[in-house]
């Protein structure tokens, strides 16, 4: 039951990230180049997850996933889904600058996921590391 719940949230969260990243313009999370395709894919993923989980007749019984465990599993699932989405998008995308020439402006703790508007997660991490190395070399 816990694994099923984890998978429900994980797959649902992947779909939500795909849908929510369209208005936010976070292209670093996109699996597809076209927003419409992206949105349809996201909806299909969310609906599929719920359909798979809730068409099982044995969902309403005395289960072992209690409230606190549900919360913990939910948090782990959405973080895992985010990492999965960001890494998969990094791999899929070659057009979005995964290794930009110019380092990302500002510090990462100020920019946050805004960085994903212009680069992927892996591109952003590499850019930040490059910037840190450059400033370290300048200091020494």
């Amino acid at each position: 039951m816990a694994l099923d719940y984890f998978l429900l949230v994980f797959i649902g969260a992947v779909g939500v990230y795909q849908i929510a990243s369209i208005p936010a313009g976070l292209k670093g999370l996109w699996f597809f180049g076209q927003p419409i395709l992206q949105c349809l894919f996201g909806i299909a993923v969310v609906v599929s997850a719920f359909a798979w989980f809730f068409t099982d007749e044995n969902r309403n019984f005395q289960h072992t996933v209690e409230g606190a465990q549900q919360l913990g599993l939910f948090l782990i699932s959405i973080i895992a889904a985010y990492v999965f989405t960001a890494i998969l998008a990094s791999i899929i995308q070659s057009k979005v600058d995964s290794c930009p020439e110019e380092p990302v402006k500002g510090k990462q703790h100020e920019e946050g996921m805004q960085t994903l508007k212009t680069t992927t997660l892996i591109g952003g991490i590499l850019s930040s590391l490059r910037k840190e190395r450059k400033s370290w070399e300048e200091d020494n």
Binding site: A20, F74, M113
Partner: peptide, 13 residues
């Protein structure tokens, strides 16, 4: 409800 909150967390431009 939690997925709606997740969408709000990410979704504003």
């Amino acid at each position: 409800i939690c997925l709606i909150m997740l969408g709000l967390w990410v979704g504003h431009p």
